[in-house]
Every structure is written in structure tokens, then in C-alpha cells.
Write a protein that binds this DNA or RNA. Structure first.
Ligand SMILES: [Mn+2]
Ligand SMILES: [Mn+2]
Ligand SMILES: [Mn+2]
Ligand SMILES: [Mn+2]
Lengths: 238, 238
DNA sequence: GATCAAATTTAGCCATGCCTAAATATTATG
DNA sequence: CATAATATTTAGGCATGGCTAAATTTGATC
């Protein structure tokens, strides 16, 4: 009985679960790559904390370790894990842009399909998609697409809720996780690149903003505002 | 503790494995939907026969039974299983056509990527792809694409090795599983739609054929010939 | 119809990843 | 600093889908 080929276990490649954990650690750790707690991961992944612990222990073992894990103190990505997470993130954002630009998906439809397919596209498909798109820099929500080598230029984005009144800003990106929020933003003309100014008039966590060349300021619900990030920018055109 | 959402088990949908078994039964059963043996499945799927038995027993139980399974006598698809198998086959062939026509894949490159993605595309993506392609009838290898409702027109294809000498035929489809064979066929101008005539001169299982308007007959290896199916057709143009 | 080889199934394991319940560690508070 | 609340880990299971080795069944042959 010779060394049987096992098409299924063919390469000790990553499972969908492993990829999802790595990507979640990348996202939750933020640009500072802070430690991420088991609870945060559990919530983000829709899984119980006990399951997270189990997975983190496995990821920490691996031949080239994927994460640095200290019991009771959260995880960070190790270099190999960060590489892989960025690769998946690149898949996700390229797919979103492709579905949007070439297959008539609206920006609130792209996320779910990209979320699944990101785990299964080959290097070849990744490259062909990137080529067709002309090597784009951002996805339909304004998120930067990591380069093939994992490079991801940092950006000084700030949540809209943290932006000062009266200072002109430009929408840099919006969260892609809530499609009804995306449809609402679409309706309001709130998309990446649009100028925006926060007006005085905070009520709770809602924000009063003037969008683009809009005459009337609009009050954004907390949910909506929470999904918007901005950069310093010119005042809305008059 | 309320009814927790489990994003992973979200729908008791099919696993990749289940889909692969159903598709394999469809393919191995042929147009007559003959019973398929455990061994044949094991070989086709790259899995041990014991594993096949286990899976068949599970598929036979299922709420809407996927297969009719008689111990020691092979399986056939039950209606629900046939539906699902055709759905996956549709995905596969649409993907092959799309990768070929829109993403610059050569016909020997499409199979592997389609084989993986077929399990993960949404109804929405399936529809958008079909629309972009203009609702095509065949994939790049000449295989018919099942319709959305599972309809798959029968076709009187015959293996080239079974075709009579001298009777003009047209290549209807070629196997997509062996990419080096596909490159060879490409080189010879052997593609669906091309006229072909078998010449006298059988040697072993090789076949001597005149392709299209070719002057010199070509001898096809057994491996190559085994992947070609033909229909009755006009003589090659002179 | 007995016998034997090949095909198939059963039995018993293993790895993944998830879950609940029960420890245990950390952190915040008085 | 002791204690309580919170976070995290451990322990013990379950389902899926593989595998090997050991039955068992089938079907062909004499
Ligand atoms: Mn995912
Ligand atoms: Mn996005
Ligand atoms: Mn497959
Ligand atoms: Mn094909």
C-alpha cells in the first residue's frame, strides 16, 4: 500500500475556519495590531469563547506559528498569520470590487458573496480579477486593497463620531457589514470621496452632517454614523 | 440562553463532500442513470470504498432522500439528489464558460477552479454569470449546461473509439479532466464542432483520424481518443 | 452446488471545529 | 488586601468525513 494520494487533505492548506480567525484578529487588532481577546473574537465570529480558546491554541502551535498567544491575555498575529490574513483580505476586497464593477452587484450585495468566495479563489483567479480591474486600490466601500505581497498603506481614517464640528472632511470608507445601512447611505449620497461637514447639534450619539453640496444638514442615526470613517478634506463644494 | 445563531451551521445545507458524491453518481451513472458501485465512486472521488459506504448510508437516510441505496448493489440518485447534482453541474459548467470567456482562462485551465467554486457560488452569482454570458448552452469543452430548473436535453454522443470508420462525425465534447490532453487537442485543432473522420488503421486502442480539412490523418493515443465524444455530422470541409 | 476471489460493509480510530458546563484566572472594588 | 464580577480556559461531547483492518456478501468457476 503505497503513499496514497488524498485529494481531500491534499495540501495541509488552511481551512475556512482558520482563515476566518486570522482575518478577524487582523481586523479587531486594528492598525496598532493590539492584542485581541477571546471574547471579541467569539462575538465577531459568532462562536462561543470556549471554541475560540481551542482554535487559538492550535494556531499558536502550527509549524510556522500563526499567532502569538498568551493564555488569558489575548492574541496577536505572528508574521505568517498576518501574511495569510492580508491575503484573505485582499481576496475579499478584490472580489467585492469585481462583483460590483463586472457583475452588476450593488454595494450592499457584494459583502456576503465575497465573504464566502475569499477562501476558495486560486492565485490564478486572484490575478486575473486584479488584471481585469486594472489593479484597483480600493473596494466599493473605500477600503484599501492589500497588495499581493501583503503591503497595506496605512491611512489616518477616523470614525465620523470622533470628528470635530465644522472641520471639513471626506468620507474615506464605510462599513460593509450592514446592507440596510448601506442602502440608506446610498440614498443620502454618502459614499467614499464625498465631502462632509459635521454641524453643531449633537443629540445622543446621532450626528448632524452636511453632505457634499447638500443644502439641508441631515441627522444620521448612531448605527449609520458608526459605520462611516473620514479623512481631512476640503469643504463640500457649494 | 436563547436560541443562539450559529453562522456556521446556518442552513442545514449541503457540504462540499455531499455535493461531490451526488455529482459523481450523476456522472458515473450516465444518461441511463445506471446503478453506480461503491468502488467506482471511491476511485472517482479519490477516497476509500469504506468511506463511500458510510456516506451512501447517510445520503440514503436524509429527510428527502438523496439516493436509493441497496446494500451491495450500488446507488442511484433519488429525485432530490438528482436535482442537487444537476445544480452543481450547472455551476461547474457556467463557471468554466465564464472563466474562459471573461477571465482569459485557456480551456485546460478552467476545470480545477470551477471544481472548487461550484460549491460556493450563490444563486445570485449563478444568475449574474449566466446573464453576462447570454445564457450559454455549452461549456468550453462542449458539455451541455443544465438549465436552472435542472433540465438537461439528452444528446446522442458516442465515444470516438466506438465510432465507425469512414462515417463523418463532429466532435461534440471532450473530457475536461486531463489538462495536458486538452493542450494536445488544442494543438491538433480538435475542438467541439470540428468535423472528423475515422480512417482505417486501428492499432491497439489508438485511432487514426482526419481532422477538419486536414490533409494528413493523425494518430490519436488511447488516452486522447478516450476523452473525445462525437455525433453524426457532415464530412470535414475539403 | 461448493469454493474462491473480488467487492462491499462493519468496526474502531482520528482530526476538525463546534457546543455546554464546570473550573480557574484576572481585574475591579470596597 | 479580600472579594466579587468577568473573562477565559478546561473537560467532556457531538457531527462530519476521512482511514485501516477485519468481517461478510456476491458472483463467477469448476
Ligand atoms: Mn469568510
Ligand atoms: Mn468592503
Ligand atoms: Mn468539487
Ligand atoms: Mn467541462
Amino acid at each position: 500500500m503505497y503513499d496514497l494520494v488524498q485529494p481531500r487533505n491534499r495540501i495541509p492548506a488552511n481551512t475556512e475556519s482558520v482563515d476566518d480567525y486570522l482575518k478577524a484578529i487582523l481586523e479587531l487588532g486594528g492598525p496598532e495590531e493590539a492584542r485581541v481577546t477571546s471574547n471579541a473574537l467569539a462575538q465577531h465570529l459568532g462562536v462561543r469563547a470556549a471554541s475560540v480558546t481551542g482554535m487559538l491554541q492550535k494556531l499558536a502551535l502550527q509549524k510556522p506559528s500563526y499567532v502569538k498567544y498568551e493564555k488569558h491575555h489575548g492574541v496577536r498575529l505572528a508574521p505568517a498569520g498576518k501574511m495569510r490574513a492580508l491575503e484573505i483580505l485582499r481576496h475579499h476586497r478584490l472580489l467585492e470590487r469585481y462583483l460590483h464593477d463586472f457583475l452588476d452587484y450593488s454595494w450592499d450585495e457584494v459583502h456576503d458573496d465575497a465573504e464566502r468566495l475569499e477562501h476558495f479563489i486560486s492565485e490564478r483567479l486572484e490575478d486575473r480579477i486584479a488584471a481585469k480591474l486594472g489593479y484597483p486600490e480600493t473596494d466599493p466601500h473605500g477600503h484599501l486593497i492589500p497588495e499581493r505581497n501583503g503591503a497595506l498603506p496605512p491611512r489616518q481614517e477616523v470614525l465620523l463620531s470622533k470628528w470635530a464640528c465644522g472641520v471639513p472632511a471626506v468620507v474615506s470608507s464605510v462599513s460593509d457589514r450592514d446592507s440596510s445601512a448601506l442602502r440608506e447611505m446610498e440614498r443620502l449620497g454618502l459614499r467614499p470621496g464625498v465631502g462632509i461637514k459635521v454641524e453643531a447639534g449633537t443629540r445622543g450619539a446621532t450626528v448632524l452632517v452636511r453632505i457634499g453640496s447638500g443644502v439641508e444638514p441631515v441627522r444620521l442615526s448612531e448605527r449609520l454614523a458608526a459605520g462611516i470613517s473620514v479623512l481631512a478634506g476640503p469643504a463640500p463644494a457649494r
